[in-house]
Design a protein around this nucleic acid. Sequence first.
DNA 1: CTAATAGTGTCTATTAGACAGTATGTT
DNA 2: AACATACTGTCTAATAGACACTATTAG
Lengths: 273, 273
Amino acid sequence: MEKIYQTEEEFLKDYDASLYEKLSITADDIIFSIATKEQKNYRKLDQKVFSVLLIKRNDFPFKGCWSLPGGFVGIKETIDEAAKRILKQKTNLENIYMEQLYTYSNVDRDPRMRVISTSYIALIDRSKLKDKLSQDAAWFQIQYTETKDKVNVTLKNENEQIKFVVEKKLKEKTTNQYEYVIKENGGLAFDHAMLIVSALQRLKNKIEYTDIIFNIMPEYFTLSELQNVYELILNKPLLKPAFRRVISKKVEKTDKMLTGEGHRPSVLYRYKG
Amino acid sequence: MEKIYQTEEEFLKDYDASLYEKLSITADDIIFSIATKEQKNYRKLDQKVFSVLLIKRNDFPFKGCWSLPGGFVGIKETIDEAAKRILKQKTNLENIYMEQLYTYSNVDRDPRMRVISTSYIALIDRSKLKDKLSQDAAWFQIQYTETKDKVNVTLKNENEQIKFVVEKKLKEKTTNQYEYVIKENGGLAFDHAMLIVSALQRLKNKIEYTDIIFNIMPEYFTLSELQNVYELILNKPLLKPAFRRVISKKVEKTDKMLTGEGHRPSVLYRYKG
DNA sequence: CTAATAGTGTCTATTAGACAGTATGTT
DNA sequence: AACATACTGTCTAATAGACACTATTAG
């Protein structure tokens, strides 16, 4: 016969937490940053490069594959804390912009067992990155093309190239929400090709109506550099006068200049928080 | 000595899933809808009412308190499926607009044990609600006022009134993200006051740049009704000509009219998907 | 006729798109 | 000098804000 509890205290004392089936949860970080690639022509501006951090897996499953940095959430830890801990392990950085993206719960995401994964976007200003990356980690340049129903992504580092294709399926027309289905995963672990595309899309959207971009920029930057980063992430060219008009509300001039570039120097700006 | 695995298959066969500490996950639904309250003055338009569905808890913890509909996610079920199952249990509705909101993982959210909760927003067009609600469920009208750093919410049904206050703490200035901290929870279970405020904010944002509102509207509606719903959710009046100009891209005229209202009849429109 | 809402016209202010021009440091 | 980029001016098109007006029905 079931016992009738009169008070919450009494109930909690007897509560058997093992009654419910449990599962494991991981945090996966999609860490983006901007790097600078020097140009050979002394007159040309240095090119900006948009990249994501990947980890070479040292264990099964997917041993030897590249994957997003991730790990199990401890029993006394929030998912946010786990996401930050993983970021710190790989980059030795703290106080970095992070945002929860989505919680994925497909039953067969992980071949080992039932694992739910919450993904986080992190944006790193590389000038803060003083220490070396953890030795299993590497930056991969992101280049992508997008059509109405497909995203093609190429990730490159000095030695390797990963290409994958994700299909966009309209899930909800009222809100333009898509479901992303991996068509070719290019050897990436788990469903990480999909997580990267989701993160890219989120970043691309947010860049249009928030100031999120300043988290990936160094403290001082020229307006051309800033425009360049916008263009890289949005994947389309912007008109200079319009860009300057709009961005001028968000930034402030400093008395610093960027000189020695083989052409007219430019004023350095700063985010007007 | 640790065994060295040569193939993934071999590794998976031996993998002991119990090695990692596990936890439970619940799905919580924040179900919004619009109802119509008849006016006494025959000339006046019926008033729209914005509401959320709450459940009277029949078990500890928080026995007797109102809470959001929620429940544990099964081991063979995705969180999305759980969220839909819960919605169906309480409203007998399927194919309803649902969207994942956030995953909360504070260690002490639930007094019983470590529980992580993923919240979902659902929008219901009440004309689809043919069956009675489950007997522990009730609609509560939402009214709220908002300042720079606080949200005051009143939930009302025929017999009861729940008032709660949630503080807004700016978490990230670049993206205007807030952390919500419950100041008075008005007797709601768990951290549900906070979940309701988060969902309200998300809805309020999305209504401005998506067509999400049409999920809460019946198939045919007048532009005044639609404007009324916008105003209820945004909590601010809109100018009629501007509203009509903008909304005209999203809706189409039908040949139906709404008559018998004590004044000039109005054309019924439909969402132009 | 009147109350109440439906629906339109228009003026102005603001913002976005496009292009052409001028300015300036480095080699 | 010439190259490459910095930076500005201005015209036009599109959009948003504000207000006043006309139109139509039930009672």
